[in-house]
Write a protein that binds this DNA or RNA. Structure first.
Lengths: 335, 335
DNA sequence: ACTGGCACTCGGCTCCTGAGAGTGCCAAGT
DNA sequence: ACTTGGCACTCTCAGGAGCCGAGTGCCAGT
């Protein structure tokens, strides 16, 4: 049904439309791309492509524009992710190289992604499945209130408050902190939960312990709900003139952590693309999401990606996302 | 020059323009507001107001719209901040009441402000000048690298990394941590800096100490550079149709922490308004900023505010900002 | 299977026109 | 001295007519 030339036509239409943002007609197509056939032939091909659902026309007697299905075929079969130029690679590398700590890495990454794709960047904080607990601390802030701190080997710090029983001595708090720290050090989340359970049963006399353990369990359980950072929101204004109407729901979606997490989806170690209506979130159905997991080859930590208009340059966006994901993964693995 | 009626005319024009987003003419004005004079009289007043720079017309023979100077006069002399309704107060109170920790308070505040003003909300994390250090911790992450943690009495946690000398023993790290923690507990930033300086001179044999102290000094110095959180960005899309052009620079400005901090300005304990060109940042010259410090009556901690179109409802926005600032201050003072 | 030709459609541009809103100014009234 | 009604004028905006051109679909011929 779709021979080689029809695919070439689809590819040319998408390329042209991405570049000029205007419906593209048969004549312009043969002029700009060396298709070596007449416009009439192209018209027939276009008619077929439209029947199959890959193209559509905004109105009769205008050029064609790609549908979501058209973009999908393009992404799946008609293009390959092109490696970045050495200069770009170097830029990524040096930009990330200056990062001081985890927060800095994430914030640099999000700015970098937004910058080179000219779209909205989303970066999820890394969760390492093999992360172990480095430290637990209980810090008394008030007579009846203490701060519980949890530090993992990746430098992630989470905290929560806990109420202390009345008449708790500083020494009690101290003792509990030491006891817990000793019990869970170098354990993974799952192991720690078991160890804490055991600890509560063994040390029944410790009045501070149960509250703190409860708080810690909450922290350990909340762990996968990682933070998501967004950047380059101003690029939404550049998504195109036809975008102004659909803009508010997009901005709204970008403020919801939950939406963003679902958007990034399951962490996979290659680049995935979700086009237009393939996104579940209704406010984002005129956008596409290009995402990639990052981390070690066999241990994906988290996901990052960009949100842009369906009419985006997929090859170049995918290349950028992939490259940034790899560099960040490598950088974090080293540091 | 500006008698009572001319001021009433200006007030009516601003009220009407804020409501309907359309230039307002003399006839509509006398109809909608009981001015008890003829349109011709109003026209003369309008001509005067325009000469004085309070009004302008988009084109000859259209109605008038206020200038920045007109809005300025309006907020300074023609309006008073109206207290919120009991229902609104209750909503603010209950919404903030559920907050668990500092992060939660800030994030709830920013959402609340954006929600009730329908504009972009900005909240600066509180810095308490009287905050004291509750805890310092040094946590070894790698053989040659450790995490330095600083916890203040407000629950603020800052952290940084420090390189350890080769062959450092765990016990050395532990000892240093205990020593430092003991030295600075319950001190303010300024006191702590002095105490640490003393400590370095006294404990020359401690090889870990200098690095950690250096890191701590950086943390203490960085303290006032507090974080700023933004919310309700989607409301930019609702600022008005004429706003679409000026939108990108606004979104851009909202991503820059530095710009935001300057925007909020000096923390003062009452509501301040900066209108249009009174803002230094060029991207924000078609917006107004309504800000207020929050904290205890005599101890302002930080600033919060909203960014909206110059054509905004100043009395209601100012009332909301003031109310939220007060509630947050009170809430933080209690908790 | 491709091509050239041809009739047809339809959006966008320009030009025009009328309606309406609003202004500025003037002379008369209070 | 301020206010008012009247009036001529300006300018935007909406609507309609008409033309242009890009683009299409179809068909007959190669």
């Amino acid at each position: 049904m779709l021979d080689e030339r029809k695919l070439a036509v689809l590819r040319a239409i998408i390329t042209d439309y991405v570049e000029n943002s205007e419906p593209v007609g048969s004549k312009a197509l043969v002029e700009r791309y060396r298709l070596d056939v007449s416009p009439a032939t192209i018209r027939n091909d276009m008619a077929t492509l439209e029947e199959e659902g890959y193209l559509t026309q905004p109105h009769t007697s205008a050029g064609r524009i790609p549908t979501d299905k058209g973009y999908r075929l393009f992404v799946d079969r008609l293009t390959s992710v092109k490696p970045l130029s050495p200069a770009e690679k170097r830029a990524i590398s040096t930009f990330l190289g200056g990062a001081a700590d985890l927060d800095d890495v994430v914030s640099r990454t999000v700015r970098l992604l937004a910058q080179i794709t000219q779209q909205v960047a989303i970066v999820q904080y890394p969760v390492v499945s093999t992360a172990v607990i480095r430290h637990v601390d209980v810090i008394r802030l008030h007579p009846d209130r203490a701060l519980v701190l949890l530090v993992t080997s990746t430098g992630r710090i989470t905290q929560t408050h806990v109420e202390l029983p009345v008449e708790t001595l500083d020494a009690d708090v101290e003792a509990t902190a030491v006891r817990i720290a000793g019990a869970v050090r170098n354990l993974t989340s799952a192991q720690a939960v078991r160890a804490l359970h055991q600890l509560v049963r063994d040390a029944v006399e410790d009045s501070v312990l149960p509250g703190v353990v409860h708080a810690l369990n909450a922290l350990l359980a909340a762990d996968p709900t990682t933070r998501v950072v967004v950047g380059g929101v101003q690029n939404v204004a550049r998504f195109g003139d036809d975008f102004h109407a659909a803009m508010e729901p997009v901005l709204e979606a970008l403020e919801e952590q939950v939406v963003l997490l679902r958007l990034l989806g399951e962490a996979r170690n290659d680049v995935t693309v979700r086009i237009g209506h393939e996104n579940e979130h209704v406010g984002l159905q005129s956008t596409s999401v290009v995402a990639s997991g990052y981390g070690m080859p066999d241990d994906v930590w988290a996901t990052l990606g960009v949100v842009g208009p369906t009419r985006m340059n997929y090859p170049s966006t995918m290349a950028s996302v992939r490259a940034v994901a790899r560099y960040v993964g490598r950088f974090l693995a080293e540091g």
